[in-house]
Amino acid sequence: MAQTSPNTHPGWFTRIAHPGMFMGWTRHVVLPLAIATALAFAAGLYVVFFASPPDYQMGDTVRMMYVHVPTAWLSQFCYAVMFSSAIGTLVWRHPMADVSQKAAAPLGAAFTALALFTGAMWGRPTWGTFWEWDGRMTSTLVLLFIYLGIIALWRAFDDQLKAARIVSVVTLVGAVNIPIIKFSVDWWQTLHQPASVFRTDGPTVDFSILTPLLVMTLAFSLLFLTLHLVRMRTEVTRRRIRSLELAQARAAGGAP
């Protein structure tokens, strides 16, 4: 890791890229971000349960949409974060990009699982079944498998620097592949089911639905940012632990 000389003023890139500096400035960001998340959730839940009317078509089941849509959005946004971090790892060997990738994978898996769960809960009253082999649900399930595969790959490696670059390759291949999977699943669905199936993009979005939806999406996005940042900080600390442990073992062993 390149040490910045104390005479030159570090640029914004160094401030992100250098783990020590990253730890310095993020220390002051975590708490405000966590408070903002809590406030956004408080406001969101208030609007969802007290200040929004039931939908004229879906009734009160619309209130499930306010967790389903934000988690579904995060399930894809998280992959975008991993994708850009993977490029950072492969092209610039950016140490924080490694950390960002590793921190994002379990979050992506968790939010994708939540999107599937809330989708199933929503599907039961509106479609009459928990699971429908619908294009969106099926590709979300495949996305969950890809997240879990990436996590499994992370855990299979001992050398985390090598793991980051190998996982980046898989993440990039996955990013190319996900649109193909989506297309193939849609093709498969039109093959097996006539157009009579309920379409998810059905009801037009009313303003009374839009407000709680936007507030909850903001709250979930802030939650993701907070968790991601804390997990990145933990990962940097873990790497520091590893080098300290090695130093300690060297000192104990008496090796040079």
Partner: peptide
């Protein structure tokens, strides 16, 4: 409403 258990589960 009628589907409260699913909303609660969600």
């Amino acid at each position: 409403g009628q589907h409260w258990e699913f909303i609660a589960a969600t």
